[in-house]
């Protein structure tokens, strides 16, 4: 019996390792391609070990303004995060703590946003951005994403689970709303804010349809407002047959996100868990 369960445990481990390799292998293979010789990707068997040809990396690095593109992405993502934190904190506080006429209606308004997918919005928002001369600006990539339903409801959830005694004591103390928010509210919902920040940052970094539509003009590369993922797509369309060069570009544009994820993977996973936590309400 014990032998059988030990075998079962080993089977489970072997299986888990196989799965981990299967999920990570595409990334490894990209690095291999990026370090290979340009001519060798034409036939079986695929090249599975790197040949350390770094010339692909410098060729790819010099054929697009990557630093500018990275800077754009970081600027857009950071501003979006700041906006989302402010709007989520205030609205989460309003919906979780405050009592005011119209709260139910406003909650429903916010919830209804979930039914309006980005693909539906892209046409009217493009028309709107065009009218307001916001195409090819940072603004159109930041402001529309400055509020998050997930963020609002996560912060609200944290406020709802706050012990009533704390709120009562603060109320008794005659604390003002803003003072309560600053000295008690923010520290208490900090874990929620961290999750929101990470998710919004990554969502902004990884978004594609929105920036590709909103920044599609061919601007001078030194003044482009496009994020790095759109730059990568443009690069791929131009240099599509240079597999090692493109693989190098894919690698060095994806690496920062991967490092970001690996450093903060606990908080990420907590974010996904809190999505499930909402289900069990």
């Amino acid at each position: 019996m014990a032998g059988a369960s030990r075998a079962g445990r080993w089977a489970r481990r072997v299986f888990a390792v196989a799965i981990a390799i299967a999920f990570v292998f595409p990334f490894y293979w990209t690095v291999v391609i990026s370090l290979g010789h340009p001519g060798e990707f034409s036939d079986f068997p695929p090249v599975l070990v790197p040949h350390w040809d770094w010339s692909n990396w410098s060729r790819a690095w010099h054929s697009a303004p990557w630093l500018r593109l990275f800077g754009n992405t970081i600027l857009i993502a950071s501003c979006t995060v700041v906006l989302c934190l402010v709007t989520s904190l205030l609205a989460g506080f309003a919906f979780g703590v405050l009592r005011f006429p119209g709260r139910k209606v406003l909650t429903l308004v916010v919830l209804s946003v979930l039914m309006m997918p980005g693909t539906v919005l892209i046409i009217p928002d493009y028309v709107l951005a065009n009218d307001l001369h916001l195409l090819n600006t940072y603004w159109i990539q930041i402001i529309p994403w400055g509020a998050s339903v997930f963020g609002i409801f996560l912060v609200r959830q944290f406020f709802l689970t706050m012990p009533a005694e704390i709120l009562d004591a603060a109320a008794l103390d005659g604390a003002s709303r803003l003072r309560f928010l600053r000295s008690i509210g923010i520290p208490m919902v900090r874990p929620a804010l961290i999750i929101v920040a990470i998710n919004v940052f990554l969502g902004s970094w990884n978004s594609f349809l929105w920036p590709v539509i909103m920044t599609n003009s061919s601007m001078e590369s030194s003044s482009t407002v496009q994020p790095v993922e759109v730059g990568l797509s443009t690069f791929a369309n131009a240099e599509g047959t240079d597999f090692p060069g493109l693989a190098a570009a894919v690698t060095f544009t994806t690496l920062p996100v991967m490092v970001f994820f690996l450093l903060l993977q606990r908080q990420f996973i907590r974010g996904a868990l809190s999505a499930a936590g909402g289900v069990r309400g």
Partner: peptide
């Protein structure tokens, strides 16, 4: 008690405005 207020909507206003302008 700071919880009961007519101004509660103002706290949700920044988020609601973004949603109104760009989504709803």
């Amino acid at each position: 008690d700071f919880r009961a207020t007519r101004w509660g909507w103002a706290y949700s206003a920044p988020a609601v405005l973004v949603f109104l302008a760009f989504v709803i």
